[in-house]
Design a protein around this nucleic acid. Structure first.
Lengths: 220, 220
DNA sequence: TATATAATTTAGGAAACCCTAAATAATTAT
DNA sequence: ATAATTATTTAGGGTTTCCTAAATTATATA
């Protein structure tokens, strides 16, 4: 069970070893603003716990398990920072500061859920991550699917419309595609082609762009 | 500057003194699952810092300033617990557990923002609080109006979200409707019909229910 | 009221981190 | 290659919290 402190050491080491293979304890000490002596002491402990590889006078680097822990924590940092900046509107410095505390308090599970919920973009951790979380892959928790992605026969209720072009939304509404209505995917010509959609008793054909602006909660 | 630990002591004392005026160190010890000796020791420290009143063999109670700190922390606990349960779908026990850690990591400011964001109902702390936060009063900013009530062309900043259905809030957040963001009422189909809303560069159509859960500070 | 029991506090110690100063190893310059 | 300099580690201490065992005070019983 790694403590807050140990986690801080690990992510700092991760940060500094990016690119290089190992760093000197003095570098770490400067980076973390902790005396060289304390760093040496801690690094020996982390080494005993199998989280880092350390050779006297040579340097430190993370082991596999240390890397795993560090990445986990850093991912938590990113999620929290995102939450604080984009949802609670803190400025970057304040968000970073606070995320440094939160990253140690949030559970793995909650962090993943938050990633999913906010559809957090790929963070650098996941570039080299063996099993990146959904969030890092760009998925979101929003259960609704874009209409174009439905297969013929699938149906559901329109949850919302979203487009960069206001005219598209208005046009859709004027066609009767309003949130709450039932739609069915009838058929499609091609992947990027128009879609034939069942809407109430009528059937409407929409081009790909329009159908990409409709989000539906699919019924099973 | 109170540490995590001290904060834990304070909220435990708050919890146990509710109703009574003072509690015995042994009670605290049982409640916190910490040895009586350690509690006595800590209580002396808290007393020196002016956070509790303590008389040997008599008992402990919070001072004004201790009460203030304890309430602040407990408010944070409630907000986090709410977030974890209603937004991230943790069950109560897990949420409580995790909130016990988060409550020490989140800043006062962020906690207030979260209260506002979720329009958290009055929590018991604020009943006797001298300056309860807006969120606790349930009065979410007089000046804010429900989004559905805006007339086309009106715009403003989202002040908070509030709905009886946690899924609605979640969905709104995942769509980008978070406090602080600018929204414009574009058009409405009918009184109880969906609304077309400008959000950043995109335009979204939401059904009446969703749009009724968004509160905005209208700009003049 | 005197004493047995229970509650509470003091004493002494341990673990996690931090620090400064002194010692030692590594590096650089002559 | 050797001395001077710099980097790193060891030594010795300090703080915060925790614990167990022993001492003390309060309470209850006879």
């Amino acid at each position: 069970m790694t403590t807050r402190n140990r986690e801080d050491y690990l992510i700092s080491i991760l940060r500094l070893t990016e690119g290089q293979s190992a760093i000197k304890t003095t570098e770490l000490s400067t980076f973390m603003n902790i005396s060289p002596a304390s760093v040496t002491e801690m690094v020996k402990i982390l080494s005993n716990e199998g989280l880092v590889e350390y050779e006297k006078y040579k340097g430190v680097k993370l082991t596999e398990s240390g890397l795993h822990v560090a990445r986990q924590v850093r991912k938590k940092h990113h999620v929290m920072e995102h939450f604080l900046m984009d949802i609670l509107n803190l400025d970057h410095d304040a968000a970073h500061e606070e995320a440094c505390k939160m990253e140690h308090a949030i559970s793995d599970e909650s962090a993943v859920k938050m990633c999913k919920m906010f559809g957090i973009p790929v963070d650098d951790d996941c570039k080299s991550c063996k099993n990146p979380c959904d969030a890092c892959l760009g998925k979101t928790n929003d259960s609704s699917k874009v209409l174009v992605s439905l297969t013929p026969g699938e149906h559901g209720m329109i949850s919302h419309l979203k487009s960069d072009d206001p005219d598209v939304v208005k046009k859709l509404i004027s066609l009767g595609f309003v949130p709450g209505r039932e739609v069915t995917m009838d058929s499609k010509i091609s992947d990027k082609g128009p879609r034939v959609i069942g809407l109430g008793n009528s059937t409407v054909a929409l081009d790909f762009g329009m159908a990409s602006s409709i989000f539906v909660d699919v019924s099973s």
